Amino acid sequence: MTTILIVDDDPNILKLVSVHLTEVGYKVFKAENGNEALEVLEKEKCDLAVVDVMMPYMDGYSLTKEIRELYDIPIILLTAKNQIEDKEQGFQSGTDDYLVKPFEPKELLFRIKALLRRYDKQPADSIITIGNTTLNKKSYEVHIGNRTILLPLKEFELLYFLMSQPKQVFTRDHLIEHIWGLDFEGDERTVDVHIKRLRERFSKLTDDFQIKTVRGIGYLLEAAQG
Rank of each mutant, 00 (worst) to 15 (best):
D125T: 09
I144R: 01
K137H: 06
T148W: 05
I149Q: 01
P152W: 05
E155A: 11
E155G: 06
L153E: 14
H143T: 07
F156E: 07
E157D: 11
H143V: 07
R147M: 10
L153Q: 14
R147P: 00
T148S: 09
P123G: 03
T134C: 06
N146D: 14
S126G: 06
K138T: 06
I149K: 00
L158D: 04
K138F: 09
I149E: 12
R147E: 15
L153S: 08
N136I: 01
S126D: 12
L151Q: 05
E157Q: 15
D125Y: 04
T133H: 02
I128C: 01
E157L: 11
L153A: 11
L150W: 08
T129S: 13
T134N: 02
E141T: 13
G131W: 01
E155V: 02
H143R: 14
G131M: 02
P152K: 11
L150N: 06
L135I: 00
Y140A: 10
L150A: 06
E141D: 08
S139R: 09
V142F: 07
P123F: 10
I130H: 05
D125R: 13
P123Q: 10
P152R: 08
N136T: 05
S139F: 05
L150I: 15
I130K: 12
L153D: 12
I128R: 14
L158Y: 03
I144E: 11
S126F: 15
G145A: 10
T133M: 10
T133A: 08
N132H: 13
I130C: 09
I144T: 09
F156Q: 00
N132Q: 10
N136R: 04
I149M: 04
S139P: 00
N136V: 01
G131F: 08
N136D: 15
E155C: 10
L159E: 00
L150E: 13
L158Q: 08
K137I: 10
T148E: 12
I149T: 07
K137R: 14
Y140E: 15
G131Q: 13
T133D: 03
K138W: 06
A124S: 12
K154A: 07
